[in-house]
């Protein structure tokens, strides 16, 4: 069964996101939370990297963290699924284990 990875730091500030996608196996999931949601934005200098990673990994973003930072669902990369806190819990339960990249 697959692993759920969570990333809580901006890809512009730390290399957490890069480390995560370099080790996330095909079929696993990445949930962007806190400042990690910045990686989900369309049209940034890192969005191509995210799109490429999406070929093998499913991406989710935590809606409340996205909205707090002034972003809406229509400003994120197509294919990234927005979840709420309940969705976060569901993802945690559905995956075999969770790797929280800090």
């Amino acid at each position: 069964m697959a692993m759920l990875h969570t990333v809580n730091k901006s890809p512009f500030e730390r290399n957490t996101f890069d480390s995560c996608i370099s080790m996330a196996k095909s079929g696993s999931s990445v949930l962007l939370i806190e400042d990690g949601v910045i990686a989900s934005l369309k049209g940034t200098s890192v969005s191509d990297k995210v799109s490429k990673a999406m070929e093998s990994v499913t991406f989710y973003v935590l809606g409340p963290d996205l909205n707090a930072r002034g972003m809406t669902d229509d400003q994120i990369i197509d294919g990234i699924k927005v979840v709420d806190y309940e969705g976060f819990v569901d993802l945690t339960a559905e995956h075999e284990n969770v790797q929280a990249w800090l």
Partner: peptide
Amino acid sequence: DGVFQIKKGQKTDG
């Protein structure tokens, strides 16, 4: 990332 501090439409209820 400081530019996000003055991003329009911040909704922190959630």
